[in-house]
Simulated scan of single mutants.
Amino acid sequence: MSRAGRTGEGRRRLGSVLSSVAVALGCFLFLGGFLWGALLYEPYSVPSDSMSPTIKNGDRVLAQRIDGSEVRRGDVVVFHEQSWGPLPMVKRVVGVGGDTVACCDAGGQLTVNGKAIEEPYLRAGSEASAAGGIPLTTVPEGRLFLLGDERANSMDSSARLEDAMKGSVPRGAVAARVDAVAWPNEGMLEPPTGFAEIGAVSQPGPLRLVLVAVLAGAVLILGGAAYGPVAGFFGRRRRAASSHAR
């Protein structure tokens, strides 16, 4: 075999090895990303407009499984509280145990611990509270005060102020924290920065990393699998060109 032939054979072998490595790594990332996502996240379908415009009726969301102790002000959570109904519900946490919540102040804003909260997730021009407002309410320890982003159309804590727990739910009722709207594809929820002045706010979960792993794996699998046919095609063209040159 000529030196050029041996060089070409060596390149084909190297290309074949790299192609196999790419496919193997792609499978690891693709399947690992799916498994990681399945362990951390659960999809939910939202059956009402009580969280509009953040989450609309019929949207599918991805929520990270968390313990109730991890919940922070501003989080959008999935919870199940029997006194609220038989199905899981989605609301925003605006107060935690010991907080005082009221609405509205002179500027028409929700206040928590006496501080006005910027709420850019509310629909433009809408009220921060339903008619009648929220009288100064202290959230019992170990519990959460929850509101929908569509304040005029949400059966939330503000509608249950007369009960013994001031409309709050126990932290243990929380099953997950919503990170993104998956369908339609509106992406990650905006961080609840309006609550940062009164305490820590949650950071997004690793959903972006999960998606990067899955997409990178898919690209490597497709690229590695395509190497053989593509290399064969160009090899035949080179051989045909060489034959014509003779």
Rank of each mutant, 00 (worst) to 15 (best):
L35H: 00
E141V: 07
P120F: 05
D105P: 04
L189S: 03
V201S: 02
G142M: 06
G10S: 10
A225Q: 06
P47N: 14
S16P: 00
G5T: 08
V178C: 12
V139Y: 05
M155L: 13
L35K: 01
A173N: 15
G10T: 01
D75L: 12
P120T: 12
I55W: 04
V201C: 06
L209P: 00
V77R: 00
A240C: 02
P135Q: 11
W183S: 08
A196L: 03
V23R: 02
Y121Q: 12
G224R: 01
C103H: 05
L147M: 12
Y121L: 04
G68S: 11
S129V: 06
L144C: 10
A176W: 03
L40D: 14
R246I: 12
G167I: 13
G228S: 15
V46A: 07
E197S: 10
A152Q: 15
G232H: 07
K115D: 13
D75M: 12
T54V: 12
L207I: 04
G98M: 08
K56S: 14
P140V: 06
I66S: 11
K56T: 05
D99E: 06
S157H: 02
W183P: 00
L136C: 01
I198V: 09
S202C: 11
A225D: 04
R11C: 15
G187V: 07
P88H: 10
F195M: 01
E197D: 14
S20Q: 13
R160I: 06
V212A: 10
R123Y: 10
P86H: 08
V46W: 10
G10D: 08
D67F: 03
A176D: 14
M165F: 14
V214K: 06
S48N: 11
V201P: 08
G32S: 09
V230S: 13
K91Q: 12
R246S: 14
V76W: 10
G194T: 03
